[in-house]
Design a protein around this nucleic acid. Structure first.
Lengths: 211, 211
DNA sequence: GTCTATAAAGGGATAGAC
DNA sequence: GTCTATCCCTTTATAGAC
């Protein structure tokens, strides 16, 4: 891996590595991890796999990067609200709303989270890849823990009424993770449309957990 | 397909075709549709793929049978409660409870429902398989409609308070479908344990939809 | 930085033995 | 009803041209 202008990423000019990553996310989502070939990813870019292998050493590493990106988007957009102002219920609402928007706007990346968990649970991988997978599972657990802690905080400050924070975390995340499964962007849809939809979903879902 | 003693299935003696189907469900769940080889299915049975091909013409047909089985279990166990006694809220609770138990007890089959939807949305299939997939998607839609109708009925009889029955159906099913993703049976677990867990989940989740 | 060509391995499906 | 052997195609990954 020679000097890539990855720093230019922040500056604005589109990065080639980023294009490969996005194409891979799309392919993995559509066909699953093992069924996706490096040729599929290349085809989606209108290139050959020489280009893919130039940016990523192997298929597992490509997938791991997709996973890492997915969870890092969630942590940045949603997890960050754990430490905001207001009651636990208010913070939970901001977290859930941002999470839903991520499911809609970075769907191709987010759907690969489940794929990664299955790979961890059932896949046969080398020791090195196993270690990376463990690390990625830790990232995911850490993200989920923010929801668990917020449910516990809501029990303490009286704003939330879930008797079992772990179970509440699971049912809430189930409801909002599922958005990535059924959501499909409409033609001409704007950010405002998605925000309205996200508010509707979150209002609906949080109703059951409020004190 | 020559004379199989499929009728013996009802009688009690284990059916060979059924064994292949169960092994296939497990493999498809673990590795995904395309990544699962007919050899994988055979290996899980301690056999070779000659046996698999004797019972199922092709890999797609094998998968379709797994999908069909999954949805038919749900329709029988949960969908049937749509027409039971009591308020819409009471019926919805019985449906959701049975659904959760299915997610736990026939997990390997149920997890393939999402796989099938992805295959339908993104897969490249022959015209014949396409037609079968359409039919399977209809079965799934019909099952989901039972939930949608019950939410609408609850609006009418005043037992449920979801403003948008379609959205309520999606968030509720998301929360309870997700059980199949995180649930893992504990050692020595009994049906009673699962029923208690299912009741906890359903109590938690339905809270938000009650009038 | 991306291409073509190729090696080595594994997949779906069938034929025919038993 | 299940197994072995086989055909043909696709896959991962690398080497080396440009």
């Amino acid at each position: 891996m020679t000097a890539h202008p990855i720093a230019a990423n922040d500056g604005g000019s589109p990065d080639r590595r980023e294009e490969v990553l996005a194409a891979a996310a799309e392919c993995f989502m559509r066909r699953g991890y093992e069924a996706t070939s490096m040729d599929d990813v290349a085809d989606m870019l209108g290139a050959t796999k020489g280009r893919v292998y130039h940016h990523f050493r192997s298929k597992p590493e490509l997938f791991f990067e997709v996973f890492r990106r997915a969870i890092s988007i969630l942590a940045r957009e949603a997890g960050v609200h754990e430490t905001g102002p207001g009651t636990a219920a208010a913070r939970l609402r901001r977290m859930a709303r941002a999470h839903v928007l991520c499911m809609m706007e970075t769907q191709t990346f987010q759907r690969n989270l489940t794929l990664g968990v299955d790979l961890y649970r059932f896949g046969e991988t080398s020791a090195e890849h196993r270690a990376t997978l463990e690390e990625l599972m830790d990232l995911r657990r850490a993200y989920e823990d923010a929801f668990r802690r917020t449910f516990a905080a809501g029990k303490a400050d009286g704003s939330l009424a879930a008797p079992d924070p772990s179970l509440a975390m699971r049912t809430l995340l189930g409801a909002i993770n599922w958005v990535a499964v059924w959501y499909s962007p409409r033609h001409g849809e704007t950010r405002a449309h998605r925000e309205t939809l996200a508010d509707g979903i979150v209002d609906q879902v949080l109703q059951g957990y409020l004190a």
